[in-house]
Design a protein around this nucleic acid. Structure first.
Lengths: 342, 342
DNA sequence: CGATGTACTGACATCGGTGTCATGACATCG
DNA sequence: CGATGTCATGACACCGATGTCAGTACATCG
């Protein structure tokens, strides 16, 4: 493998001059520059980042820790997608900034994290992004003296900068649109109560009611999530048996909505004529393909990744830290024909 | 940031001895070792990979190029998933081997590839894996003198080692199972003819018929794929209007099958009682959640990634090159209730 | 015309590890 | 008992870039 010395010799200049051509950080004569460039391409020279890092201490590397890659334990399971979109947004920003992203996967085992951080530190990453699989609290230990960290899709209690999806405002926007469309009895089959998102979204559901001067009937809100979808049947029964059943049912995610279509049709209930349905996530493979297409709301994960990346760049460049912590990213309602006006 | 000299001084030994403790590559006295380890943790010392690479020339890095991250242009679009599973398999193997994976994304623009390769070469990656978004031919230029390359989910015409999904045997297994279940008229709504996979799968469909001594009715095979799903309606009409309509319909992917459920029900055709349906991909969010759950076949993308990674490790270690090129990975039929016996 | 500034270039030290070689202290062997 | 081998350790050079400093040639200014 050719070195800068080989290039220098071939071009008849000093190594330092080659370095100047490579980095364009000092004036170089026209003919000299061309001779150097010629030698570089003739020799197929590629500079060694390792040597550069040693002297200059800027690695150009950013570390990212995620379970995105292995958190999709089986083919076709969409669980890992949010993380994936976040990674995508992060990648997008760093590609622009000519930083290289090193991605490490926890393999679903958080006890591996310290080892991954240590590897990143060996590579002298300039910063670290930790991406969680779903909106949650976390504890991400970084020793003092380590690189700056930004949390994406999670937060901690010690003030580490973090960027989160705004579950509350998303649910609020969606329910506001339903109310606007004339709905007054809005059922809500939620995700598991153990999830932060569930509480936040119920807040959003309440916010929208409060904004419209409506009271909330707690009987309309039922936890109905499980991997195997079983709780949905009984939850749906309870909603339909209410003295005043809902005219629209919101679901904790689009898969639940897909399931709900089936359950309602089994009971001979037409969607959306008799009962409207709304989802959450805008999981397009489902939301667009279902008939009728599903009204839902999108968590802007890619944007979340972009913001996390910019945040980290700001910290690396020692921008004054904003007071806006955590950053919450709102997302758009996607209106399709699974909801009718009343 | 502490260096190996700081540690040496703190432990009262030479830097070389610290190095020996770190790499465990030569005997070190018990008390000396403990003194060094103590100094390391006291100082929070993390060795510099850059310095290590300079001297030893082993970077411990593997480069991976993919569009997985950005090939999912919109939320919930499953297009990028195969690549993702491949990356996952690759990651799994290299994590075991203590190699660090650098992932670069093409952002969908293949003209960026040379720049990405150049960045990887600057980091002195020991090898490179190129992952394609779907089974296809590709041309991946690496200059001579560059790191070894393995292609995953794609192949070229110049003999670069590659690992591919065995579309043909997958379709063959599926159709064989259908025949075993008593089906004799097997419709097939294929993906686009421009895709390599389509031709291979039709081969597999024929293979299964030939194995069973059945002839193939070409009228049963129709190209029916488009992003907007529109061609499916007319294709289905043509199948149903045949003098002897099919008793089961295979689809090019699980989304098409999901769509087909809807179209059949609109016509009052019961699935699976009147017509059975089979998919392709085992896209679980769909295949498991649909009612009835979908019989399909799984392309083993994660395994494909693992194999590609092991292949590359073999090449790096200069194992004798196997003659088995390209490697084709078969996958299992996943039998669910969307197909009945006849 | 001498002083000053700017463009261009090279010599040399240095970053933080590891490979090579040398050395001293013991243990083992014939 | 001397020869040989193994364990444990250190001295030193070196990997391939870049930061610092200095020097030359030429243009510009007062």
């Amino acid at each position: 493998m050719a070195t800068i010395y080989d290039v220098a010799k071939a071009a008849g200049v000093s190594p330092k001059t080659v370095s100047r051509v490579l980095n364009d950080d000092a004036p170089v004569g026209r003919t000299t520059r061309e001779a150097v460039q010629d030698a570089i391409s003739r020799l197929g020279y590629v500079p060694s980042n390792a040597a550069r890092v040693m002297r200059s201490n800027r690695s150009g590397l950013i570390g990212l820790i995620t379970g995105a890659i292995s958190n999709t334990p089986e083919a076709g399971d969409p669980k890992g997608l949010p993380e994936l979109y976040i990674v995508q947004g992060v990648q997008e920003i760093f590609a622009e900034e000519a930083k290289t992203l090193m991605i490490s996967d926890t393999g679903g085992r958080s006890d591996r994290v310290p080892a991954l951080v240590s590897t990143f530190r060996q590579h002298r990453v300039e910063g670290l992004i930790y991406v969680a699989d779903y909106h949650r609290q976390t504890r991400f230990e970084v020793r003092p003296g380590g690189p700056p960290v930004v949390l994406a899709n999670c937060y901690d209690t010690i003030g580490t900068p973090s960027v989160l999806p705004d579950d509350r405002s998303c649910q609020r926007s969606l329910v506001a649109r339903l109310i606007e469309a004339g709905h007054r009895r809005i059922g809500y089959l939620t995700l598991g109560n153990y999830m932060d998102a569930t509480g936040l979204r119920i807040e959003g559901y309440r916010d929208a009611h409060a904004d419209a001067g409506l009271s909330v009937d707690p009987d309309l809100i039922l936890e109905a999530y499980r991997e195997d979808h079983t709780p949905m049947t009984s939850a749906l029964n309870r909603l339909l048996e209410l003295p005043e059943p809902p005219s629209v049912i919101c679901c904790g995610n689009d898969e639940m909505a897909m399931r709900l279509y089936g359950l309602l049709r089994t009971r001979g209930v037409e969607v959306p004529e008799e009962i409207s349905v709304a989802g959450f996530d805008n999981y397009r493979a489902i939301a667009e393909t279902l008939f009728p297409p599903l009204t839902t709301v999108e968590l802007p994960y890619r944007e979340l990744g972009r913001r996390a990346a910019r945040r980290l760049l700001g910290i690396i460049a020692k921008d004054p830290p904003g007071t806006d912590d955590p950053v919450r990213i709102p997302g758009p309602v996607v209106w399709r024909s699974s909801v009718t006006a009343r």
